[in-house]
Write a protein that binds this DNA or RNA. Structure first.
Lengths: 189, 189
DNA sequence: AGAGTCATGTAAGCTGTTACATGATTCG
DNA sequence: CGAATCATGTAACAGCTTACATGACTCT
């Protein structure tokens, strides 16, 4: 049951439709999980059947109808249990790192290119997360917000996401630079 | 085909048995992938059947026999193709972050505890990776090694792993501290 | 004597990805 | 007028995890 708790945690701050959740899993929630829309629709259906969330139909005129979900008491209890259970360690799993691992034995050009693309993508997310954090804390500074804010969970996970992207960006740029320089000096392949 | 390329990349530096690879996927290789022994044995069998790796039986006396694998030319070509193809973006997927996301609505005690455990685990891996890097580059300094070393792929991915663990550790400690302080001040739950 | 290491798997089940399907409305 | 957005799914397949199984040797 991996996705279910991520969904429950995401629904804590209000009612969302599957469609809206899918968006969230692409931006804010992407700090700790990732899922495709199909998976979310399936999971929402299952969670509702189990009584961990409840949905209500919202009839719309100019757009298709939608179902909004919120976490039930049973759902909250489920989260509580989940939080108390041991977490499995987090690991990186990244195609690009596999390519870098092999970089001495294969063509470096596409790897360098992808590293630089990644760096740009990370840059964009850094901006996104920075803005999100700024908007979330409003006028108060971070220290103050974390001391007295009412809902700091999403802020904390976003901080993790931000740090991750910064780190990732730094490494991508450095690695690309190293590989470029080696191509220049010992004209290999 | 996600695991296969990770396996191929791991086999670039010599011959390994399934058992040895499983160890590697727990330490060095963990920088970019993770897999259980069963999965590795299965994947090695498949890769051999497809001719991307070749194995040879090594008869041992005091221990069970083992099969050592190395990458074939076809395997190297496969890696080459893989490197040229687009990578899917990397994302975090972490139980503990889900718990932190929900932390305002559930009991904080187990979350704090797990954050601190994670920090210790990260600490251990920081040590491990630092030593690995030091041993790999030998006498020369990092700059020099990256400029002229013969096999820098594993070094570069290890650098990423090190940065990740450092970052993770920092965030875990900071988050745990924030949650502790809040428990002290506004005695909630 | 028990725990840990070396060494390799099978089988079942759960999770996640890819491909396919539909259809109205709004924006450029 | 074509692309993007809103909105929700089904079906098939690929990948990963968990449980089970075996057996000798070495270290404490």
């Amino acid at each position: 049951m991996p996705l279910r708790h991520a969904v429950l945690a995401s629904l804590l701050d209000g009612e969302y439709s599957g469609y809206q959740l899918a968006k969230a899993f692409d931006v804010g929630v992407a700090n700790f999980w990732h899922a495709l829309p199909q998976q979310l629709y399936a999971e929402l259906t299952k969670l509702e059947k189990e009584g961990l969330i409840s949905g209500r139909e919202v009839v719309q005129e100019a757009r298709p109808n939608k179902r909004l979900f919120r976490v039930t008491d049973a759902g909250l209890a489920e989260l509580e249990n989940f939080a108390a259970a041991v977490s499995k360690p987090s690991f990186i799993r990244d195609d690009l790192l596999v390519k870098v691992q092999a970089v001495d034995r294969i063509g470096t050009a596409p790897v360098i290119e992808q590293l630089e693309e990644r760096a740009s993508a990370a840059e964009a997310r850094i901006e996104l997360f920075s803005n999100l954090l700024r908007r979330t804390r409003g006028d108060v500074d971070e220290e103050e917000f974390l001391r007295r804010g009412e809902r700091i969970g999403p802020y904390l996970t976003c901080l993790r996401g931000l740090a991750f992207e910064r780190d990732h960006r730094t490494w991508c740029l450095r690695t690309a630079a190293v590989l470029r320089e080696r191509r220049a000096t010992h004209a290999q392949r």
